[in-house]
Simulated assay, not measured.
Amino acid sequence: MQINRKYILLVMAALCICACGLSVYYVLEPPYNATVRDEDLSADEHYFDFTTDDSSNTNVLVFKGTMVYYKIYNNSSKLSTQVTSIKSANDEYSEDGYNKLVSYNYKPMTLDTGSLISDQGYDANVTIRLITEGYGDSIYTKGIKVGTNDSWGYAYRSNGDEFTSVTETLMEGLDEGDDNSGNYDIYKSDEDDDDSSSDGWYIAAFAVSYGMAADFSDTYYSELAYLGYLYLKYDDYIED
């Protein structure tokens, strides 16, 4: 039987790469099935939702789960500009989108269980409602649902505060930009700007799969899944 010389060379090259200990680069599949939200929504639609891709990622490396990054804006134009820039950098099997996201001061939501929706072992549908709102018999309660678990807990800002802590008084007291101590997750523009809001705030969000190398030496992030943005009015808050 004649052995293909080219095949032998390819096998030898592969063995050499493994033997030489060159770095292995892992890739993760991103969350999917996100309903991209926008500001023109009623209270019953004021939530983020997506599906994790745990089934594809479980055997890739030490897969940890899914994280949700967000940023609060009082200015729709600034939100649009930064989201467009992040999406432009968000290439398949690349961390460029994640790196751009972090450069714009997007922060991970904190949950009762940390900042991670842990690996469920199956693709789980996730729903995140940030505040309790509604009227009369139609009250929609804040909280997180993951797969078959309807009481995963609550989502908080990166500083641990409730999202209802974003009040008109808080926003008025901030300096312009996103460098206010304790409120780095908020971008505030000049209140006289035509695209600035005085009766509420916007929140944009992305979901990302997260994992680590087997020796825990490196962390890895997937392509981002854009979840859209919500517009939440101060007057709509219902205290629990």
Rank of each mutant, 00 (worst) to 15 (best):
Y47F: 15
S88C: 03
G65M: 04
D119W: 04
D193S: 13
L174R: 05
L232D: 04
L230K: 05
L28N: 07
L28V: 08
N183C: 10
G153M: 07
G160L: 12
G121I: 03
Y7N: 14
L28I: 04
L174H: 02
Y154R: 09
C20V: 15
V102M: 11
D123W: 03
F50T: 05
L79W: 03
N90E: 02
S217R: 05
D96A: 12
M212W: 00
F63A: 06
V24A: 10
G121S: 08
K6M: 14
S94K: 03
C20R: 06
T51F: 08
N180S: 09
N105T: 04
W152G: 07
D123T: 03
G65E: 06
G114S: 11
D123S: 07
Y122F: 15
G114D: 07
A14L: 15
W152T: 13
G173W: 04
Y184A: 14
L22V: 12
I238P: 00
N105I: 01
P108R: 11
V208Q: 02
W201Y: 10
F216R: 15
S196R: 01
Y98M: 12
R37Q: 14
D236K: 09
D190I: 03
K64F: 06
G177W: 02
Y187W: 13
G147Y: 06
N74V: 00
A213K: 12
L22I: 11
I117K: 01
C20N: 10
W152P: 01
E162Y: 04
M1T: 13
D175T: 07
V60M: 07
Y32Q: 10
A43E: 12
Y220Q: 06
L61Q: 08
N159L: 06
Y7H: 14
D137G: 15
G200F: 01
L111Y: 06
P108H: 09
D178L: 03
V68K: 00
L22H: 10
E223G: 01
A124N: 09
D179R: 12
A34E: 11
D96L: 09
I131N: 02
M1C: 13
T51G: 09
E45Y: 14
T169M: 13
D215Q: 06
V208E: 00
D91S: 15
S115T: 13
G114M: 08
S151H: 05
T81M: 13
Y7D: 15
G160M: 11
S42C: 08
R157K: 08
I86R: 02
K78S: 11
T219C: 08
Y93D: 14
D236E: 14
E162S: 09
S165E: 07
L15W: 08
A213R: 09
G177Y: 04
N75L: 06
T35E: 12
L15E: 15
T132S: 10
N57A: 13
D175C: 01
V11C: 08
L22D: 10
G147Q: 07
S209D: 12
T51D: 12
Q2I: 15
A214L: 14
W152I: 06
G143R: 04
G136T: 04
T164C: 01
Y156A: 04
M109S: 03
